[in-house]
Amino acid sequence: MNPRAVLFIAVLGLLFAAFAIELVRRRLVRPEYVLVWGVMAFGTGVLAFLAGCAPWLMTLSGLSYQSLVTLLGFLFTSGMVLTLTVIANRQGKRVIRLTQENALLRMEIERLRSTPAAQSSPAEDKGGDA
């Protein structure tokens, strides 16, 4: 590959990796969610610096270089979207569970508050504990 193209891809990959690390450093993204971006940066580096890698993949797939890059980009994006879908689904389930528990616990609290024992004065309660 053209040395200028290698340099361009390498700089782009490094910038991307630096941006991802900065997001983690600022605690905007948890490390586990950035790992997939790290894999992408690594893959980009392999394609850029291992001169034989791209031609080998082209021979293997029968695709031109442009098509190969487009396909890899599409596969990565699809993988990322799928990962995010799984994460969103998991978080959604947790939100539902928390919402349900919240409602049930608030109901229990209200019920306990309305019982005669709970309506005794705080001073009496403290005295009883002591």
């Binding site: 539902i96 919402t99 349900q100 919240n102 409602a103 049930l104 608030r106 109901m107 019920r111």
Partner: peptide
């Protein structure tokens, strides 16, 4: 008894 969900979960939730 009333369990008051803080936001809409849908009939299943």
């Amino acid at each position: 008894l009333v369990a008051d969900l803080p936001h809409n979960l849908g009939i299943g939730g």
